[in-house]
Each structure stands twice: as structure tokens, then as C-alpha cells.
Design a protein around this nucleic acid. Sequence first.
DNA 1: GATGAATGAGCGTTCATTCAT
DNA 2: GATGAATGAACGCTCATTCAT
Lengths: 195, 195, 195, 195
Amino acid sequence: MKNLDKHDKIISAAIKVFAKKGFFNARISDIAKEAKVADGTIYLYFNNKFDILVSVFEEEIGKIIAQIELSLSSETDPQKKLEIFARHHLTAMKRNKNLAEVIQIELRQSNKVVRDYRNTAFQRYINLISEIINEGQSTGVFRKDIMPGIAKRALFGALDEVTRVWTSASDTSYTLEETIDQLYQIFISGLKIRS
Amino acid sequence: MKNLDKHDKIISAAIKVFAKKGFFNARISDIAKEAKVADGTIYLYFNNKFDILVSVFEEEIGKIIAQIELSLSSETDPQKKLEIFARHHLTAMKRNKNLAEVIQIELRQSNKVVRDYRNTAFQRYINLISEIINEGQSTGVFRKDIMPGIAKRALFGALDEVTRVWTSASDTSYTLEETIDQLYQIFISGLKIRS
Amino acid sequence: MKNLDKHDKIISAAIKVFAKKGFFNARISDIAKEAKVADGTIYLYFNNKFDILVSVFEEEIGKIIAQIELSLSSETDPQKKLEIFARHHLTAMKRNKNLAEVIQIELRQSNKVVRDYRNTAFQRYINLISEIINEGQSTGVFRKDIMPGIAKRALFGALDEVTRVWTSASDTSYTLEETIDQLYQIFISGLKIRS
Amino acid sequence: MKNLDKHDKIISAAIKVFAKKGFFNARISDIAKEAKVADGTIYLYFNNKFDILVSVFEEEIGKIIAQIELSLSSETDPQKKLEIFARHHLTAMKRNKNLAEVIQIELRQSNKVVRDYRNTAFQRYINLISEIINEGQSTGVFRKDIMPGIAKRALFGALDEVTRVWTSASDTSYTLEETIDQLYQIFISGLKIRS
DNA sequence: GATGAATGAGCGTTCATTCAT
DNA sequence: GATGAATGAACGCTCATTCAT
């Protein structure tokens, strides 16, 4: 964590504070204290409190998207790609629980700017799933009667909800491999016993 | 909507206002105006602003839980039960978009009381899913290697995320039947083409 | 001072505080304390700090204008009218030193709203002088080569500056009658010895 | 504007900024930018923001006083002296509108230091008028019943108010000669038609 | 001397909550 | 019970001033 410049220190602090208290209950002075800077310093790097939140989204989610795109690029099998996506998402969220919390909670705000962000940059992330499904359908691995536009929502929602519980410190009921395997089984093979 | 007493009028108004502005941006005076009562009147029925939110959860989600339990009680086939659950959830959320919004956003607050609620009463709702899966496994319809504790999260998460998009007024891409069928296909049969 | 409603109490307090500290150095809490209301109460009656200042101008100067118009209405002799104007201005300012201070200092702010006010409502006050001069010229009492547009400024400026010194508590060098007589002599008869 | 050292550059910039925004709305960074120096540099030449304002008064008004004293020294006729004073004041203010604005507005602040300055150095300027009147009375040109202590205020106030309007860029209603002549007529000969 | 990033005290304003009517 | 005017604690943000480079 050395050599982080002020901007990054503030972003990191904000993620921690937003995760703990939520955006609205977070105080600028909380973030400043956490970042070990003066309150006023924050305004040298961000326009206002809300701008900090948006920056967290843009910068941090951007990094995750870039990483996962990289991870997926070296794989061609759609089934494996879905597994990679799930594994990557889960581990990325687990590694940065605070960011996960912020994404899961604050990215749902009804605020117009947040909505817009969710509908653009974050959309890119979710669309990675529908692209994989499309590929699978093209190569004949996945059923053609599945609509990628709905399936991507279903998969992301499942992943997101499982993540919430799985990343919570208290939950040690399931291992990473177990969790991924379960999601994989459900989505790839379904619940029904094959006749 | 006839014969609503003040308490219910305030709850209804709060759902509308919370949905539109979010809990933190909602003003007590907004709710009072919407409920056509004086600001102070609200405090005759609720302890504080937060208490209104909790009451929304407890009373409104309680109603939905009761309804769905009733719907499920007359059905024995686990597969059909899952379908009923999905259909019921989607239609209930569509019918009351504002409540859906409040549940999806505000029930995720990091506040301790909200967390506790989510972990108790709301849990009951989600546990309906794991119970169905358990039943299916007992009766030999569902695979025994699926862990209901994870699967219930996956199904609820999928349902929740699909709901968010599907209930949004602008989205007319998919019909109710289409959406339910897709979820059913994915979860029951999986993505993979049966060999 | 009894039976003043909150609005008037705040205006009175603001005049006192603005006079003592100046608009920019005045704190809302100073005004609130002086008016014996809570800080927040001020915002039930005024939009913001600046709105208080503008209200002081509009309401208090409005009263003074109305009074002086009444005083002038019963007199026809232009010379006497000028004397009445001067006497009225001096006594009104002396009676309400704080308001005088606020008018003399804050009404000169470069702020657009203040400038506009000075150019409209306050203008009405100053124009009373040019109207009197016009009358005097019509009736042949005043020299026709005097331009009322410049003279009104000269007279008002003189009156204003004399007022500043004369109303200051410390200055007891000149009586009211003396001061008015001097202004009258200077403006009516000039400095020069009549040949 | 060549070869101004930092001190003078800052003073010039401050006059411009104070004139445009007023002292309280002016930012140190505004002045620094206008002077093309760093914010911190200002504190190498001035103790604080207020000190800049006081320096503007002391240095710039000092120059004007010196100039006018020089102009008056070569004239002996009191009437001519008054005319010179008015002409000098008007042209000096017109030449440096920004300084005029600062003097007219900021020199009225209720702050003790400003008051003191107005009562000392600035007083010297105004007293030039009473000295002229005294001379005129000694030489028998001016009426002895005029009290120089009041008349100096009246003349200065008139001059100041006329200046405000006359220097404003938009006002082209009156020429310099017209304006001076009018003031001269009013004060020297009065409004009344000589019988 | 010059810089400008950093500081943190200070204030206008908001709004949940109270309580006299 | 119902009202809504009044309260005052709380906080985002600004900006004069400092000081390490």
C-alpha cells in the first residue's frame, strides 16, 4: 500500500468507509481521517462527496473489468469461460470485500448519475456473460432456446447474491471451490436429474 | 385503497417516497405531504424515520410471504412449486413496483437493524426456496449433489436481478411467461444441451 | 417592541447585527441569537442570508420612502420641500442609526441584486429630489441652468455623507438645526457672497 | 505597467479583483492569479488578506493626495481651488475606476482598522476642502456663516456620489465639463435665483 | 525568494424531531 | 388525536493561511 498518491489513498479510504457505514452515513471527515488527510484535501481531488462515490465506481470497477476481460481472453471454451467468470468475480469480491459491499449497495441508488453508470460501464461487465452464452450457442454447447438477455441477468444475479453471503466474514459454510462448483452445476446442468 | 387509517396511509406514502428518492433523500415532510397528514402526525404512529422503513419491511413483506406460502401450500410438485414461486415473486413485484424498489435497494443497507431484519423475516422468504429444493431432493426429482443453502441464494439472486429489469416500466422486451419460462429452463434443465 | 412577529424580529435583529459587523462578518447565529430564535427558524422566513439583507432594504427603506412622500405631499414650496427632505432624512437616519449604517454600507455592494435594488426602489427615493428641483424650476424659484439629474446626486451625496458623521454617536459638534440650516444655505444660496 | 515588482503587481491585481467582486467575495487565489504569482507569494509581501486592502488605501490614496496637493499648491483663488479639486477628483477616479470602486465601497467597512484609516489619512484628503473654504472666508470670497466642518462633508459627499454615477462605464449622459460646472454652480452660487 | 499542495477552522443550511396549541 | 412552527445538532464545503520543497 506504499506510494499511493493522495487520490488513491482517498479512494481506498472512501471504499472502506462507504462499506462500513454506507454512502449517506459516511462523513467526509470519516474518509479524511481514514485517508490520513485533512478534510479540505479531499476537495483538491474530488468535486464533492458524490463525486468520490462515482470515482470509486469508475476506477475500481474499471480495473476489475479489465482484469476479467484479460482472464477470459485466453480461454475459448464457453463452459470454462463461465467458470472463469464466476471464479474471478467471487475471488475479486472476496479479495476486496469493501468494494464488493459498495458495489452491491451503493450502485443501486436511484440517483440518476448512478443509474446511468450502472447502465453503461457496469453493463459492459454483465454483457460479458451474454457474450459467453452467445458463443456457447454458436458452437453448439449451449441450448439455443435460452435467451442470453435474460440468462445474463439470472447468472449475474445469482453470482451477486451468492457473493454477498459468501464474502461476509462470518460465512465459512462453503469453500470457494464448493461454491463455484455448485453454481456451475446449477447453471450448466440444471437442478433436474438427467433421465 | 378505501378506509385506510393513518398508519396505512403513511406506510403507503413512505413506500412511494422511498421508491422515488431513496430512504436517505426522502424527507419526513415528503412522506407527510404524500400521506396528506402533518409532519408531526407521523410521530404518533412511528418512533422515527427509520422505524417507518422497518415497518414497511415488516408489514408489506409479511403480506407477500403470507400470500406466497398460501399459494405454495396447495401444490406438491417441487418443480411446479419453483415455478409458482417465480411467478408469484415477479407478479407481486410488478404489481407493486415501488415496494419492489424499496426492497431491492433499502433492504441492503448496512445498518444493523436492516441486516437483522434481512437475516430473519426476509430469510423466511428465501428459505421457502431451499425447502422446495429439499423436498425435490427427497422425492427424487432434484439432484442430491445440489446444496440447497447455495442454490436458494442463486435462485433468489437470479429472480431478484431479473425482476429489477423486468419491473422497470421501460422494459417490454420480455413477457412474463417468457421470463418465467427462461428462468425455469435455466434452473431446472441447465444451459447445457442434454446428450 | 412588543407583538413583533418572528419575521419582524429577525429583520430587526439583522439590522442590528449587519450594522455592527457588516453583512459578511455577520453570522446567521448572531442574528438568531439577537432575535432570540433558533438558527433554523430564520430559514422559515428567509431563503438565505442574502435574502435577509434584501428584505431589510425592501421593507425598511420602503417605509422611509412612504413616510417622506407623505411629509412632502402637504407642502408646495420647493425650497421648503428640500428642507423637509433633508430634515426627514437626517432624523430618520438618526432615529435608526443601525439601518442608516446598513443602507450606507451594504447598499453599495457590487452584487447584482443589490445594484438592481439601488437602481430601482432606492432610485425612487433619490428621484424625489430631482422632482422637487423640477418643480422649483417650473415655478421660477430655482435656476433653470441647474440639471436636476446631477443636482439630485449632489444633494443626496451631501446629505448622505453629512448623515454618516452626524449620526455617529460620538459626534455632537453640530445640532440638527445647525446641520440642516448649513445644508440649506449651501444648496439654496451657495457659498459665494452675494454681490 | 513595466517593471512593477511583485508588491505592486499584487496591489494592482487586488484593486482589480476587489473592484470586481468586493473584498469579501475576492479570493486570495483570484488576486494571485491576476497578479500571476503563487498564492503563497502574496504572504511574503502582505500579512493577510486584510492587510492588502489597507495597503491599497494607504499607497494608492496617498498618491492621489500627493497629486492633488501639488495641483492645489500653484493656485491661490479659493473658487478656482474648489474647481481644481473637483476636476482632479473626477478625473482621477475616472482614470482608475477600479480604485474608485474600492474606495467608495470598501473604505466604508465597519471594521475598526478601516474606520481608523478613514479618520486619519483619508481625512487629510477631505480636509483639503475645509482648508479651501477657510481660505475663501479669510479672503472674503466665501460666506462666513458657512461652517467648513459641515461644508467639507457636503462637498465631498456630493462629489463622491456624482463620481459613482459618472465613472460608471454606462453613464455618458454628462460630460466632465458639464458635471464640474454643475457642481461648481450649485456650491458656489446655490440653487436659488439671485434676486 | 517562490511555489502551490495541504491544512482545518468556521459557517450556511438542512431536516428529523418536539411540543404548545 | 392532529397540527405545523420551532428547534438546534450536524455536516458538506470553502478558503485564508502555512510550510516543505
